[in-house]
Every structure is written in C-alpha cells, then in structure tokens.
Design a protein around this nucleic acid. Structure first.
Length: 213
DNA sequence: CGGTGATCATTC
DNA sequence: GAATGATCACCG
C-alpha cells in the first residue's frame, strides 16, 4: 500500500477501516492473526500505507501525521497508556520546541480499537484526526519541561511526574543500559525511558470527540 | 541492534 | 481497579 497522498486520502482509508474486524483487515493484507504486543498498530500501519514503523518520525512523514491506536474497553475507555517518543538522553538540547514529543503530538490520527474481547472479534473504530488545543499544548509542554528540568537536576524521575505526559521505562529489559548525559554533561549508563500519554488524557480526548449518548 | 509497535505483571 | 515499572515482537 502506497502512503496516502494527502490528509483527505488518509481520512478515506480510515473511514473504510471503521467498523471492520481486525481479522478481516489482516486477511486483506495477507497478515497472520497473532496475539502479540504491537500487532494491532503494525496491522493498521500496513492497512493505511504508513511508512515502516521503526523510525523516530511521524508515521506519515509527508503529512506530518502520527498514527496511534487506542485499545478501548466495552465502555469505550482506553485500557492502556500510549507511547509517544523515546527520551533522547544523549542530547544536550531537550527543549520542547525541538522535541520529538511535540512533533509527534502536533497532529495525530487516533484509532480506537476494541481490546477487552477475543482478538478475532475486535473491531476498528472511527478515527479522529486531531491537533492539540492551545490549552492542551501548553499543558503538554509544562509536563515535558517539568520532566526534563528534573532530569537536569540529576533527580530520579518516576512515572508520577506529569499530569498528562509521564516518563516510563522502555526497552529490552531493565538491564539493557545505554549511554546518556548526566547532569554535568558527562557520560553515564542508564536504562532507556520514554514519554507516554496517561490514560486520563486519551480518555478525555475520546470522551470529548465521541460523546456517549 | 536499536527504535517503535505496544501490552504484561507487580505494586499501590 | 488503576498506575507504575518491566517486558516482548517486529522492522529496517
């Protein structure tokens, strides 16, 4: 599948997926149905023509749009938080303006997908192509800067920091250490971590845009 | 092998 | 139950 040429084409493709069962989407694209982490996201990337998944840039680079699936329960509420971007600890410059978090959240195609039922029965929901409001932008920026500032002091940052954005482990395992800059600009070994959106954020997002009757 | 796709398991 | 901290498969 070629990447969509513009946002309208992406919307058309998203509409076509809405209501479809994952197993039918998989069959159309010759993808085996396997229960494994990341399978849903990778399937929808393929079905929508997103660029290969292992790059630190939006899934649709020409459109500047990031694709995010949201696993939802029977009441339509997210059951998990949402990975946004890895923390680039090997950089001196962790300003919000140039951050991957900001770039990825500037425009997102959110696709709710059923999650609390057997994999074969799960259906894809109606997508929402979204950009943060001014309030959301400044709140996300605040969280990001709080976290980065704490890191700059050399403090231990847990997932408790941040209203909507949080920092959590992300990697092969806790023993998988990488080089990073410490608070004095020296090199230090650290486990990789990443920014996630809390469920409260995506829950409010879905509630606002898919108001329950 | 590292980053992205996430979900799993333990703790609170 | 919900959140935190940990982990897994896939892709290039």
């Amino acid at each position: 599948m070629e990447p969509p040429r513009d946002e309208a084409e992406l919307r058309t493709r998203l509409s076509a997926l809405a209501g479809q069962r994952l197993c039918d989407i998989a069959a159309e694209h010759a993808v085996a149905v396997v229960k494994s982490k990341g399978w849903v996201g990778t399937l929808l990337e393929k079905a929508l023509g997103a660029t290969g998944s292992s790059r630190a840039e939006p899934d649709f680079p020409q459109l500047g749009i990031e694709l995010k699936t949201i696993p939802i329960d029977e009441r339509g509420r997210p059951i998990e938080s949402c990975f946004v971007a890895s923390l680039e600890m090997a950089r001196f410059d962790l300003r919000w303006e140039t951050s991957a978090v900001r770039k990825k959240l500037e425009r997102v195609a959110w696709v709710p997908v059923q999650a609390s039922i057997p994999l074969e029965q799960r259906r894809c929901g109606a997508a929402l192509i979204w950009s943060p409001s001014d309030e959301e932008r400044s709140a996300l920026r605040g969280d990001y800067e709080d976290i980065v500032d704490l890191l700059g002091t050399g403090a231990r940052v847990t997932a408790r920091t941040g209203t909507w954005l949080q920092l959590r482990p992300k990697g092969r395992d806790a023993a998988h250490l990488r080089w990073a800059l410490d608070e004095e600009g020296g090199l230090a070994r650290t486990a990789p971590r990443a920014f996630y959106l809390r469920r409260t954020f995506t829950a409010a997002l879905l509630a606002r845009n898919f108001a329950a009757p």
